[in-house]
């Protein structure tokens, strides 16, 4: 029962990959000639073959979010990036003494394992913070200002992510 579920998950996972890759090919190629489409099919098959071999070798399953999740997440992230950039820019053109860097470890138990990367990268992209290390349930963060750390500790990003992608089970 459990194995079949895993199997099903693996199949859907593969199907997701195949579709994305096919779309990617079409976007890149832009040709609809039968020859090139044939090459496209062959290429996707080949890539999937290699991909599956990799999956079997390293045993690190990958999960996509749905398109919807991504679309929901992206604008927020873009906004964060913009504000972060403005802050850094201000810092750069201002005087250097304003910088008061600090370091903290943040507990991220709430964030699901599979989303930790996203979380870490989001931290890096958001204002004034930079992920240094992801280590189990703790994320080490470097910040330009102490306030950013405090904000992080409040779990704003974490809640955003869990809000979109769901809680840790």
């Amino acid at each position: 029962m459990a194995t079949s579920k895993i199997k099903v998950r693996r199949y859907t996972h593969s199907a997701k990959w195949i579709i994305s890759l096919s779309i990617f090919w079409l976007l890149l190629s832009g040709y609809l000639k039968p020859l090139l489409l044939g090459f496209g099919v062959a290429s996707v098959v080949l890539v999937m073959f290699v991909f599956n071999r990799m999956q079997r070798v390293d045993n690190e399953p990958q999960e996509f979010g749905t398109w919807l999740q991504i679309i929901r997440y992206t604008p927020w992230l873009l906004g964060q990036i913009l504000s972060s950039s403005l802050r850094v820019t201000k810092l750069v053109w201002g005087s250097a003494s304003e910088v008061s860097p600090s370091l903290a470890k943040i507990n991220v138990e709430t964030v699901p394992e599979a989303r930790r990367t996203l979380y870490a990268n989001s931290i890096t992209l958001t204002p004034g913070t930079l992920t240094l290390d992801v280590d189990g349930d703790e994320v080490t963060v470097h910040a330009l200002e102490q306030t950013s750390i405090d904000e992080l500790k409040k779990g704003y990003i974490a809640s955003k992510i869990t809000g979109i992608w769901g809680e840790n089970k």
Binding site: L91, T124, L130, L144
Partner: peptide, 11 residues
């Protein structure tokens, strides 16, 4: 260095 990483990465 770490502040510089901020600058580089975000911008």
């Amino acid at each position: 260095f770490f502040t510089r990483v901020h600058a580089a990465s975000v911008t």
